[in-house]
Each structure stands twice: as C-alpha cells, then as structure tokens.
C-alpha cells in the first residue's frame, strides 16, 4: 500500500518536472519548491546524524575528549554570521578552512597537474599519435599563455591549440550523449513499467 502511494507520488512529481520542458508552470513550481524544502531538510538531518552526532557530540560529551571543543567553537563561530554586530567572527573558521585547503592544493596540484602530466607527455616521437599528443599539449600551453597577444605565428600556434581543445570538447560531448539518453530511458521505464505497468 505504502509502496503504491509512493510510486504514485514519485510518478506525479516526475511529470511535474517534465512539464518544465514546455514552460514554467504551477506544477513545476510546486515540485521545485517541494524539492528544495525536502532536500534541504534531508541534508540537514543527514549531517546531524552522520557527522555532528558521531564526530562531535559523542567524542566531546560522551567520551570526554576536550580537543573536540575546537571544532565545536569553530562551528559556533560560523553560526555567529547570523548576528550582524559580530558576524565578522565567522571569518575565523572560514580562514581556517580556506587556509587548510589552499595549502593542501598548493602541493597536491603541483604533483598531479604539473609533474605527472609532464611525465605522461614525455613519449618518444615515433608514431603519428605521439606527435599529435606532443603538438596538442604544447599548442594548448601556448593558448593559455597570457603575456603575448595572439597574433602572427604565435597566434597561429594558439589557434591550433584551440582546435585541439574543440576536438576534445566535441569528444566529451559525444561521449556523454548516450549516458544522458540512458537517464531519460530510466525515467520513462519508471513511468511506463513501475507506475503504469504498460511495459513488462
């Protein structure tokens, strides 16, 4: 019984969202606003039960580990953003997070985005494919060079770089099409099979 009601609700909401393809309308607005409310509530509960409870409240209040006062204080500082006169205190936890990740990325991206990519490009120029790889990477780097206007020979090389980029974007585009169509097929299957039982 519950499942049948659930499937009906899911199917009607699915149709409400699809109606957006025609134009904005009250059904879509209803589904959209319900979506916002329910999902915001879901994530708030999810983080309370899966993060705050086991990673803060239990170690701090049940296990008595005082170190956890620090994240608690940082969290409360974050909430102080709601108090206009002292909202600037929320900058401290933000600085903590931003600084931490800036340091983390500074190092990891040098390794993954620079050193590893350069290593992967160092292949002997013995086949047409390896030449294409070499030319593609170097002309791409030329395109992203900001200190010189894209004119003359330099502009020509940069143009070549852009062509490579466009081929790559086209490849990504084409690669994604089937995956996206399969998502639609999934929803159609739900409507026609699980809801209407038209197909088996």
């Amino acid at each position: 019984m519950f499942e049948t009601i659930g499937i009906w609700i899911a199917a009607l909401l699915t149709l409400c969202i699809f109606s957006f393809l025609y134009k904005d309308n009250p059904f879509y607005k209803f589904a959209e606003h319900l979506f916002i409310g329910v999902s915001a509530g879901y994530w708030a509960c999810y983080y309370y039960h899966n993060v705050l409870q086991p990673n803060l409240f239990v170690p701090l209040f049940q296990e008595g580990r005082p170190i956890f006062i620090i994240p608690l204080v940082l969290g409360i500082m974050m909430l102080l953003h709601l108090v206009p006169k002292i909202s600037w205190i929320s900058r401290w936890p933000l600085a903590f997070i931003v600084g931490t990740y800036a340091g983390y990325y500074l190092i990891t991206y040098l390794q993954t985005n620079a050193l590893e990519q350069v290593t992967a490009t160092l292949v002997p120029l013995v086949t047409f494919s390896s030449v294409v790889l070499f030319v593609g990477v170097t002309t791409g780097l030329v395109y992203f060079f900001f200190s010189k206007e894209h004119k003359g020979t330099f502009g020509g090389i940069a143009k070549f770089g852009i062509w490579f980029l466009m081929i790559a974007f086209g490849a990504s585009f084409g690669y994604t099409v089937m995956a996206r169509i399969s998502l639609l097929i999934g929803r159609m299957t739900f409507l026609l099979k699980d809801w209407l039982h038209i197909i088996q």
Binding site: I17, A40, Y42
Partner: peptide
C-alpha cells in the same frame, strides 16, 4: 541565499 545542498534541487531552483 542558500537553497539546498542537493545538486539537482539547486538546479531546479536556479532554473526557476
């Protein structure tokens, strides 16, 4: 303002 942490909930709202 904050909408929701849900990826497509957010998308639906921005579309609106």
């Amino acid at each position: 303002f904050y909408i929701t942490f849900s990826q497509f909930g957010y998308t639906a709202a921005v579309d609106g």
